[in-house]
Design a protein around this nucleic acid. Sequence first.
DNA 1: ATCCAAATTAAACAGCCGTTCAATTAATGA
DNA 2: TCATTAATTGAACGGCTGTTTAATTTGGAT
Lengths: 198, 198
Amino acid sequence: MTTAKSGRRKGASESRQEILEAARALFAEHGYQRTTIRLIAEHAGVDPSLVIYFFASKEHLFAAAMPEPSEAALAAPKLMAALPRAEAAQAIGRRILEAVNSPGASNVLGIIRAASSKPEAVAQLREVFVSRMMLPMITELGLSRPKERAVLLSSIVTGMTFVHEMLDIKTEWPTLDETAELELIAKAIELVLTVDLD
Amino acid sequence: MTTAKSGRRKGASESRQEILEAARALFAEHGYQRTTIRLIAEHAGVDPSLVIYFFASKEHLFAAAMPEPSEAALAAPKLMAALPRAEAAQAIGRRILEAVNSPGASNVLGIIRAASSKPEAVAQLREVFVSRMMLPMITELGLSRPKERAVLLSSIVTGMTFVHEMLDIKTEWPTLDETAELELIAKAIELVLTVDLD
DNA sequence: ATCCAAATTAAACAGCCGTTCAATTAATGA
DNA sequence: TCATTAATTGAACGGCTGTTTAATTTGGAT
């Protein structure tokens, strides 16, 4: 019995997908530079050179691992279009906070960390985050100056996420009233959606 | 004439300070990992080993190079205490925006980039940014729930800075109305300062 | 004048990184 | 069946990193 060390494995291979998932998680958690190919390979249970075999380079892997906007985020605007503005603002606020605070799919923080650690990814980030998540929400509501509002909404969500997760406010200041904060963020979003910009 | 290559230089040495300034600028611009000791040394016009000689390690240098809150930021709260709340909110908003948009002393972005690229710096960041900049402003105004408001104010400023500088909105979407945005940010700050959190 | 400490550099070290190469095994199609 | 392609590994390479060591020059105190 010779222990088969190298060579192709039996059955269909899921390595490519596993590498992609490991890369997504690790890039989001540690940023670009700190996420080594060796670490990705380890999490995917494969050899580092297999990562290069599938994705040619770390750059290409990073591009392929860019997080997509979640289905909830893409489906939200159509739901919101039917509601009155004040209610829509509250609903959007709640949905954004859910997405930000959900443990698994906190891809907003991943996007932020990726962009701050890799300037070349900024254009990609703007496309995904501002243009595909925020702008559709706002244009669907038929508001004036959609670009301005999209940028402002992105600012609020980004700041929220950054301060919350990155500064680890919760564990450091446990006295913070979470519901009060949620309420205020909703009001800020409502302000962005209802303020007269002309 | 032997070209004196090594050994102490004549006159008083400013190398330590020059290293510190180069480090501050480079950490703010490129984050922790991308800023190499060799790069800092080059900008300071010294040998890389001199950086270690003065600061013992890159970690210590980073700690020593942490940006301090500007004098304007520290002086602001006393000025604001005298004004009515709505006016104070507008004034604080303008001052924050000036600090964020000023080309030289844009240390807010530096703080953000440092923290996102080096998780160990997060505690230091929270101390400088939230506790020493935002909290004094708010407690001086005698508002309720100062910690909540400080966190929220930090969120807004952080998000503003991040989206503006990091995503390079200006050069990409030149149609954005800058004054309208400034107006709205002031309103958001006013909201944070005036909203009833109880 | 002399001695020690401070400042400075050049050279080198070990460690990690992304990537490449060659070898090996399994699936696939002619 | 047999040649080709895909999947996989281990080993290695060259480059960059933070850091150390030794040597050299100056400043300051005795």
